[in-house]
Every structure is written in C-alpha cells, then in structure tokens.
Amino acid sequence: MKDFEQPVLRVSHLNKQYGKGCASCRDAGGMVLNKNFCPVCATVYACRDITFEVYAGEILGVVGESGSGKSTLMQCLYFDQKVSGGEAYISSYKSGRENIFTESSQQKRYIRNRMMGKVYQNPVLGLKMDFSSIGNIAEKLIAAGNRNVREMEARGKELLEHVNIPVYRIKEAPRNFSGGMQQRVQIAKALSNNPPLLLLDEVTTGLDLSVQASVLDLIKQIQRRLKISVLIVSHDLGVIRMLADRTIVILDGRIVEQGLTDQILEDPQHGYTQQLVQSLLV
C-alpha cells in the first residue's frame, strides 16, 4: 500500500518493558511469559517488537484489550515514556533519517511541539484545567516558539470555533466543561501547530454514546479537511471501524494481525481478532 511514498511515521521493532528481565524471559524467547508478564522476575513486556507505518492522509487504527500495550505505544511515541529499544522516523524531521527515540531531550520537545499533537483519554493529562481554553492553545503555540499574541489569539479562536466551542466560552477554563467539550478543546490544542501527525488515545472512553458519536464525527471531518495523518488507539472495534483505513491488532504487547480495516472486519485471521469482531456483531 502506497509503497512509492515515504511514510509520515515509520516505527520499527519498538520495545518497552517494565523491569530488567532475567535469563528465563530473555533467553527463552518469551516462552515462560504469562501473557506479557514474567513470573520469575516480574518484568512486564508492554510492547514487543512493534513495527508499522502511517502514510500521508491515512488513519491507522490500533485495537486491543485493556493492558495489551496500545496506550504504552502512544506514550512512547509522544515521549511520555522512554522506549527500551527500537526506532521511529518522522518524514518531516531531518528528512526521516534520524531515529527520534535517540534524539536529545531538547530535540524531542521540538518534535513533540511541532510535528505531533496528542489527545489523551483523560483530558487532565492534555489540558491545564485552570487555564482558559484559548490559553491552553496559546501554551502549545508558545512551546513551539510563537510570540505573537494577536496571531495566537486568532489561531485559538479559529480552532475552538472549528471544534464547536461557543465563542463566549473560549476564555472559560476546561474544568467547567463536559467531558465531550474537554476532548474537543484537546483536539483544538493538538492541531494548533498544524502537525503532520495526530495521536488519539482512547478519546471516546467514558463519554456518553451520543457524545462519542459527535467527537468521532468531528475527528473524521477534521481529518478529511486537513488531510492529516492519524494514529488512533481503542479497545472498541466500532470506533476503529468508523475511522480507520488500516488496522493493527495488539495482544499482550505484540501485533497479531494487521491489514485494511474492511478486510479485518470481514475475514479476521487471528483467533483474538475473531473474538473482537464477534463481539462487535453481537
């Protein structure tokens, strides 16, 4: 698929473990693990040899049960967690030739503030709840080096209107908003610097069904209008079905299946994917 294009994001053999590991779990090739947990040394292998690509204008879905490693993957990509091993390349950063995981802290901040936006499952992690909504957007712009107050104010108003936050509430703190409105403010903040890549981590979890639908519809509209690349993780295959062009399925820290979303829904190959699809049909 699109093999003539350079991916916007290329991830190769990403690993993340909690614990030092031991001879039992390292040398046995994972044979002694209980799912992704070593009963000998208590090391958790959250991500194991994760490899994938995201292309321009594509929505790639990552689906898996709670504890499968999908949110850890997102934390590693956004530098909220340090990887244990692996590589990642962004085409707009040094022509896609430098492994972003091995860059300095200063360069990681540069990448995070200019080339990626993230919407967290818990808005408290993505927003300063005591700042105004427009102030949250200004914070992201300032972090990227913008110092023009008028430009930042204009950009903030434009984005908040774009995500359907009423004009008269843009100077109100997100703590006064509903969960769905907080997620929309997060989306506006994540888009403030026109990043080529948007990371969405369980953005509808905990929201009422009607609010979930409006947030998903907003994401779809924004992605089509801006032609931005999106990586979205969810435990809900219904969310992935609505949004994703391609999907990877993660179980116990490993990718067990990947392909076009329609293909995975119509003809799942792995037993775990079959269970997911069956639960969607019930």
Rank of each mutant, 00 (worst) to 15 (best):
V215S: 06
T72L: 09
S95A: 10
S279I: 09
K220S: 12
E103I: 12
A56G: 12
R155K: 14
V277P: 12
G180D: 04
E139C: 06
P268R: 02
M152V: 01
G145A: 05
R225N: 13
R254L: 10
Q269K: 10
D130Y: 11
E58L: 11
N136A: 02
S229K: 08
P7R: 01
V277M: 09
K118P: 06
N113W: 15
Y110F: 15
M31G: 06
G253T: 11
Q186Y: 00
G29I: 12
K70I: 06
R112T: 00
A213W: 02
H270W: 05
P166E: 13
K16H: 08
H13E: 14
L141K: 07
K128C: 08
G156V: 07
E103Y: 00
P196W: 10
F101N: 08
N148S: 13
K171C: 03
M115N: 14
G57E: 10
R225W: 00
V167T: 12
T205W: 05
M129E: 03
S24G: 10
C22V: 11
K94H: 05
A138L: 07
G180M: 03
M181R: 02
G126D: 05
M129G: 00
R175T: 00
G64A: 11
M116W: 09
N122W: 05
C25I: 11
G180R: 03
Q258F: 02
L243G: 08
L243S: 04
S12H: 12
V230A: 02
K16P: 09
F52Y: 15
A28D: 13
I264S: 03
N194Y: 06
G126R: 02
V215E: 09
S210A: 13
E202G: 10
I187G: 04
S210Q: 10
Y45F: 15
L243E: 09
R225P: 00
K128Q: 09
G253W: 01
S84R: 01
G69M: 12
M116V: 08
K189T: 08
D27P: 04
R112G: 01
Q223G: 06
P39S: 02
